[in-house]
Design a protein around this nucleic acid. Sequence first.
DNA 1: CTGAAAGCGCTAACAG
DNA 2: CTGTTAGCGCTTTCAG
Lengths: 356, 356
Amino acid sequence: MDQWYASREMSLDWRIIMSITIKDIAKKLDISYTTVSRALNRSPKVNSVTMEKIIQEAKKMGYQPNAIARGLVKKYTKTIGLIIPDITKSYFSEIARSIEAVASKQGYNVLLCNTNWDKIQEITYLQMLQEKRVDGIIMKSVVDTDENLFNNIRTPLVLFNSRAYNDNYNYIETDNVRGGFLAVKHLIECEYKRIGFIGGKCNSYSNNQRLEGYKRALKKYNYPVDEGIIVNGDFNTKSGYDIMDRLLKLKNPPDAIFAGNDVIALGALYCAQEFGLNIPMDFGIVGFDNVSFAKIPQVQLSTIEQPKYYMGKRAIEMLIEEIKGKKRAKKIVVEPKLIIRATTRNRKINHGRLVI
Amino acid sequence: MDQWYASREMSLDWRIIMSITIKDIAKKLDISYTTVSRALNRSPKVNSVTMEKIIQEAKKMGYQPNAIARGLVKKYTKTIGLIIPDITKSYFSEIARSIEAVASKQGYNVLLCNTNWDKIQEITYLQMLQEKRVDGIIMKSVVDTDENLFNNIRTPLVLFNSRAYNDNYNYIETDNVRGGFLAVKHLIECEYKRIGFIGGKCNSYSNNQRLEGYKRALKKYNYPVDEGIIVNGDFNTKSGYDIMDRLLKLKNPPDAIFAGNDVIALGALYCAQEFGLNIPMDFGIVGFDNVSFAKIPQVQLSTIEQPKYYMGKRAIEMLIEEIKGKKRAKKIVVEPKLIIRATTRNRKINHGRLVI
DNA sequence: CTGAAAGCGCTAACAG
DNA sequence: CTGTTAGCGCTTTCAG
């Protein structure tokens, strides 16, 4: 021990460069480093006078506790991993912000992992996160099937809006069927007569759930379900534009559409505008997600909002709960909400009222 | 030692729950755990047959190296911290994506810290990151002055677009003066005759740099600088809208404006549209940043692009360089780029060509 | 209330 | 090529 202290003092510069440890401050105060550790952790068992002295000295010396060392013994890192496809999309960044906010409030940091929709990346990240011993993982998986790509996860996990779960994991998702239903119900209440659906990929789980909601609403209100105006494509604006173009050229075109998401809706909206249609009088559009651009004055898209802030909050809360208690397999389904803006009737355009 | 192994076998369940270590696999194979460590690190000094055997056994037992333990001895964590004000803004999320992409390619993970424009949060994060012993930090500071809030950072650091640096730290920023100059030069070339400026906060460094660029361009092309059509407000759409409204009601209103950023430009654009002005024929607008909504078909805003992907990439490269080599205080100024869309003349609207 | 000692899981000399 | 030993910086029994 003494030998150790000696070596420690060989170089003073060294002390400036490397961070100082509890042993350094113990030496300085000539007490055991155990006591220093206890004082710094505000243990009630240590004399309040020495505690104060230690804390002051630590501050003076610029001591910064080493969370790595602590983690090694306490077996936690106070960090969680967040795996998402694309932080650039407002849908994910809003959830990420919410997760990060409540996580940090609880003393957790979040490791951001952007898979870029790549399955291999996702697996790589899962591996890295576990090696780094994160206390838990929240992820939106790229895989949208029942494949079990991650059976060997030993870490608390919550999946969101991912089909790729089995009952061992927590998950949270919005009720997409309900969302589709609300969208179409609104369109019907606005008295549109022929409502089409422009979807994204036909093998997307959430897309199909939304379509299911669409059909249920039509049936409920005795509208016919016409497969001729239900068409899937891709989750992008171009696809929305192209499909809309096709639909509007039909002999019997729709007078409203429900789009699989806002990005698609944006393309459809633009196409309708180019056709010279008066939105919302001639034609109604509702999207899904309520992404950031949906509210800008030039767009003002009516849409179905996923409560992203709430979802992120609940996801991290679930996770922390599991980290602490080790109870698994909770499921949360959250309610989507209709947001009426300027692309559906019954609502004047939002002149001058800017909300961005 | 043997005693230790014995305790290890007391419970088999335990092994399933806790992660297995190199000692476990050493015991299983009846060799020293040092050799296991070496084999797992592909040390050339270990016999290739035993190496293979060890690797197989490790895989079979589902061994996952403990990065925490390794970090404690190797003194690095292979993680970096990213401190930004708001991940929800496309400007930051795009930079974040780029940083994360190249970081992960180099074996680093990134801890996301969202300050929400709060100075206190920023300091708290700086502290947490250092306690977690990140290998380096990239940050966009909230503080936009010369205050030295972080003189006690012992970690490699690169600041981006932050005024709050001193010469001890790396930083990277876009040339805002140049950007402002390019914007106004373009407006002049489009033959607008009276060009105003709608800025954000008047104490913002980047805002003032952009204004400076604006003035330089006017002077260079012999346009008068009229303080009556230079007005600062706030960095939001509402402010852009309101100021534009005021400007258009002037007896001698501008016929074009350069906005301090895209969000402001968006409000100004909307206002001009409500005034019934034909954009871009009657009135020209150019923004700054090229955020995500600038390119949507309903907006198509001409703007000055900050090369966000490039900036993120360079930032993380600089950081890793410093982590490895310990050379400090590099400065990078990157060139902004004019993006011509539909809010300035000399360009037909992008009918049918969607790029989102 | 305080200290000595063990050990978290791993790497790194230093001997063989 | 392989094993022994000594830590990384901290927390945690277990004795005083």
